[in-house]
Design a protein around this nucleic acid. Structure first.
Ligand code: ZN
Length: 297
DNA sequence: CGGGTATCCTGATAGC
DNA sequence: TGCTATCAGGATACCC
């Protein structure tokens, strides 16, 4: 469900409901949802702690606790959701963890597929160390991106999905960015020129910013804002989920590929396969003597 | 190092 | 209609 724009929306909407409240208790309904310590250890750290502030880093939602009690980091993965409810409201389906809060509220973490995590840590930097830059940060330049992409040879799409390179993109926004940039997802990253990386940088930031304005993208039951509304950016998709439909740019039918085990939507005309080689082929088969060859298409 | 695959889970829906 | 196969906004641990 959640990529940078959805997570940003969740943080903005959830913040007023939790900041300045004190955690009174922890209810855990799926053990593996909680990480970063045993339940007892985490409970000892957070119960009685006040939530000082909340913010987003990459796809993490961060609840910073006051008085050196560490932080709770929430990752929604595929189907996670957060809602603030009144204590007396009945529990909804798929609640995996719930924090009792002061003021008669609670914070529910729901997650159909159970991939999401609520992670406690003494210092969030432990987790953030391995993350790349925020794509919307003022100091994230096209030059930074150029270096990050061209300093190694990787397939372009998996590289953009790699959170250590740029933090926050997922399958939707990578497909949209590549379409807008006219680049094939299998392009070898070290073959990108300045003009290419410049376009990726510009388009990525424009698309993410616009998607935040739209409060993210919804196209099934999973992603809802904490206020319960679907996002609106799906109405502006040019690539994601549009396979079999005409390209908005040239009219050609979009196709769907699989890249890095992810559904990948491309216009075969606007995003031509790189002429040269794509990413390193493994050139096994030292020499074919052809003695055993049978069928050869 | 880079890329492919399996794994964690459940439910919606496409296809027969 | 009913059953089964496929797929899903993520990330990571292995294997070659
Ligand atoms: Zn096109």
């Amino acid at each position: 469900m959640p990529e940078l724009p959805e997570v940003e929306t969740v943080v903005r909407q959830i913040a007023p409901g939790v900041e300045k409240r004190t955690i009174r208790g922890l209810d855990l309904y799926w053990a593996r949802t909680l990480s970063g310590g045993t339940r007892a250890r985490v409970e000892r750290a957070i119960v009685g702690a006040r939530i000082a502030r909340s913010y987003r880093r990459a796809k993490w939602i961060v609840f910073e606790l006051a008085a050196g009690r560490g932080a709770l980091l929430v990752h929604l993965r595929m189907t996670g959701r957060l809602f603030v409810r009144a204590t007396k409201e009945p529990a909804s389906d798929y609640v995996r963890l719930s924090l009792a809060l002061s003021g008669g509220k609670r914070l529910d973490f729901e997650d159909v597929r159970k991939f999401g995590r609520v992670h406690w840590c003494a210092d969030p930097n432990e987790v953030f160390e391995s993350l790349g830059p925020e794509p919307l940060a003022d100091d994230f330049t096209a030059e930074d991106l150029h270096m990050a992409l061209t300093s190694r040879r990787r397939m372009l799409k998996p590289l953009l999905l790699d959170q250590t390179v740029v933090a926050g993109l997922g399958n939707i926004y990578v497909d949209e960015t590549l379409f807008a940039s006219g680049l094939h997802p299998l392009t070898a990253s070290d073959r990108l020129g300045r003009a290419d990386t410049e376009r990726i940088h510009t388009n990525m930031r424009r698309i993410l910013a616009r998607a935040i304005e739209c409060q993210g993208s919804s196209f099934d039951v999973f992603y809802r804002t904490p206020e319960g509304q679907p996002g609106r950016f799906q109405d502006e998709f040019l690539a994601y989920g549009r396979d079999g439909r005409p390209c908005r740019n040239c009219g050609t039918e979009l196709i769907k590929l699989t890249v890095a085990q992810r559904g990948t939507h491309v216009c075969p005309v606007c995003q031509p396969k790189p002429r040269r080689r794509r990413v390193a082929k493994k050139k096994r088969t030292a020499r074919r003597t052809d003695t055993t060859s049978t069928s050869r298409p």
